[in-house]
């Protein structure tokens, strides 16, 4: 086991690739390894990128990798794509836009499927971030489709959260308003050569200006940038904004090491407990057969699901 930790810290690609799969597959052995890796984490800068399907997240990530590599920074990419709720399979296609970096030893790209496990996406993605961190990647880019609480939580745990939109999706912005607008540290309007980019810009600006009291208190004011990721237009300026945000975090918002941030540790520990509890409880109930018996009873009309749930859970937690 220590052998694995050593290899990860030394940056061994095969070991890291296998470990991430073991994490994703919920292998119990990884817990010990993650414990031992923890002291080696806390150095990477994590950037979360989210937005609706088709706004250009993967293309943007590809350009970001190119820019960061020019600065001699090493990069880990976690690209999350949805699992089919019907078959359990997934097509992980984000690599298509990033393959030019696959021979670069300073870049590690890994595709993850959402898999639909109970709150597990957040957990396994965060563990994968820790692994990249421990292997010494300077930057870790996490890309998710911005739908569903899990995906939002994943990018929220980043140092800098980036929301990508495109012009002409007015209603889409309405949707984002309710969910993910408040988590954005930087907003990008990609494909900005398209009609309606000024309208999108003013919509976003209006939303952000409404929080002007926060900015008056010195809190970070999210910039909005028009970019064309596929032509690499505006990406350098975007990276500069990430630097500014990092500086803001370091100087005014309590530092860059997550492990020293009370709110991050609270959030992370809370999620860890949640995931572990569900895992332990469901495992116990399925192994004992109580779960299936309760399902039968509900179907046969012998019990209602609310009572069944209480009967299953309360004996375990009390």
């Amino acid at each position: 086991m220590n052998d694995i930790v050593e290899k990860v810290v030394a940056g061994d690609v095969r070991t890291v690739a296998r470990l991430i799969r073991d994490i994703d597959d919920g292998m119990p052995e990884v817990r010990g390894i993650l414990k031992d890796l923890y002291p080696h984490t806390g150095k990477a800068y994590v950037i979360g990128i989210t937005g609706a399907p088709g706004v250009g997240k993967s293309t943007l990530v590809d350009q970001m990798v190119a820019h960061l590599r020019k600065r001699d920074k090493t990069v880990g990419v976690l690209a999350v794509d949805p699992t089919s709720p019907f078959s359990g399979g997934a097509i992980l296609g984000d690599r298509v836009r990033m393959q030019r970096h696959s021979m670069d030893q300073g870049v590690f790209i890994r595709s993850l499927a959402t898999r639909g496990h109970f709150g597990g996406l957040t957990q396994s993605t965060r563990s994968a971030i820790d692994v990249f961190d421990a292997m010494g990647k300077d930057y870790i880019l996490v890309e998710t489709v911005g739908v569903g609480q899990d995906e939002v939580d994943v990018v929220r745990s980043a140092h800098t959260t980036v929301i990508v939109v495109i012009p002409g999706m007015g209603d889409d912005i309405q949707a984002i308003k309710a969910g993910i607008l408040e988590i954005g540290d930087i907003f990008l309007i990609n494909k900005a050569d398209r009609e309606g980019s000024d309208k999108t810009l003013s919509d976003l600006r209006l939303m952000i200006e409404m929080d002007h009291k926060k900015y008056d208190r010195g809190e970070w004011k999210p910039p909005i940038l028009k970019i064309q990721a596929v032509f690499d237009k505006g990406v350098a300026e975007f990276i500069d904004e990430i630097d500014k945000h990092a500086k803001y975090l370091a100087e005014t918002a309590g530092g860059l090491d997550f492990r020293e941030s009370k709110s991050k540790v609270r959030q992370e520990l809370g999620e860890m407990i949640k995931a572990r509890l569900i895992e332990e409880v469901i495992d116990r109930l399925t192994e004992s057969g109580d779960f299936d018996r309760a399902v039968e009873s509900i179907i046969n009309g012998k019990i209602d699901p609310y009572t069944a749930c209480e009967n299953l859970v309360l004996p375990i937690v009390s």
């Binding site: 078959s87 399979g89 097509i91 690599r95 393959q99 021979m103």
Partner: peptide, 19 residues
């Protein structure tokens, strides 16, 4: 493959064996 329940990584066109 996806419909069969596999996780499928697709690399796109024009890949070298090394990539």
């Amino acid at each position: 493959y996806r419909d069969a329940g596999f996780e499928v990584v697709y690399t796109g066109l024009h890949q070298t064996p090394e990539e």
